[in-house]
Write a protein that binds this DNA or RNA. Structure first.
Lengths: 190, 190
DNA sequence: GTCACTTTTTGCCATTTGGCAAATGATTTC
DNA sequence: GAAATCATTTGCCAAATGGCAAAAAGTGAC
């Protein structure tokens, strides 16, 4: 599983064998069952997490107490990497496994050790962070100006493997529509 | 005007007098008239721009040819700083002045010279980039699940100084609603 | 297979928002 | 100040979406 993480990182910059050994030594594995939380709103994000397999969602409670899904991540994503190095690391959203998940995690300290030991690490991580943030931004931002059917079609494009794996209620909430509207939209499309 | 830029940067990290002199030497000023474009979709972003005064909007054309406003920036923002260092610097959106604007600009090369000359520069810029991206993301992403009135109220919160300075058509497009809906919403609120 | 449980679909109607065109208001130009 | 132009509001009706509850379909345990 660590190989998968190394392969992911290597897309963004080269690592020597020594460096890989160092990273592997710091890494630990984490499994989450469907429904479990990786991180909770109001708490501080304490570790870097790489999703090796499974699906998580980012969600929050709005002021009416509704639980709203803001985003999905599937395998090969660093979870909320940008949050770990902001001044305020308190989360406003939670991260929940919606299928069984396997992760590689690093404590914040180990991650910083790696950063100090490996020249170019920060630049690699910055590229990943930028890619993740702009991807989330593009996918969410364009939803605003679309009607419900187009939103759903975009969801299918953006997350082609997810549609049959997760409850429709999460998808509806991600799209900002009700579950019954989504159901009707699906009927019209198929 | 360069002082304003230095003050902005200094929020994110300290600079010596020497470093400030270097930055000032590389900076140049740019004025845009209302309606002029700072950058256009399909072209490559060639410079770093700091908006010292005025308002710009980010907009694009959807597949029906509609022009859609995706975001606004007012003074004290680095414009699309994250885009300048992606592999593909081709813009999918344009940046248009919607009031008269004053900017400080740096060519990509000068910016990289500064980066090489000033230790810690990259880390300062990274903080700014992260702050900008997460701010845009938070503001846009939450719109999806709100109704039109709530969207407009959030716009007023997020951009308190903008409401009376820019055409309602831009605001409506930013909110993903029609101009007539926005007009009715405004009537109900006031 | 049956039961209990959860998820998804459907029907009915209310509400919100869109589409279009005309009217009003604001701004600029001469 | 009048004319021309642009921005905003309004009226009318249609279309899209929401709210609620019941029905149907799917899932897992025994």
């Amino acid at each position: 599983m660590i190989d998968q993480f190394i392969a992911y990182i290597s897309q963004f910059g080269n690592l020597t064998r020594q460096q890989i050994t160092l990273i592997a030594a710091k890494a630990s594995e984490l499994e989450l069952r469907k429904g479990e939380y990786y991180a909770e709103a109001g708490k501080v994000l304490k570790q870097v997490g790489f999703l090796a397999s499974g699906i998580v969602r980012i969600c929050y409670h709005d002021n009416k107490g509704e639980e709203i899904t803001r985003y999905f991540f599937n395998e090969n994503h660093l979870l909320f990497i940008w949050k770990l190095f902001e001044e305020d690391r308190t989360l406003s959203e939670c991260i929940q496994a919606i299928t069984d998940c396997k992760l590689i995690v690093f404590s914040r300290k180990d991650w910083m050790d790696i950063s100090n030991a490996i020249t170019g690490w920060d630049s690699i991580v910055q590229k990943i962070e930028r890619k993740n943030l702009t991807e989330v931004l593009d996918r969410r931002a364009t939803l605003v100006s679309e009607d419900a059917t187009t939103r759903y079609l975009k969801f299918l494009e953006n997350f082609p493997t997810l549609a049959n794996q997760i409850p429709l209620s999460y998808i509806a909430s991600y799209l900002g529509i009700t579950q019954s509207s989504l159901s009707r939209i699906r009927k019209n499309i198929c």
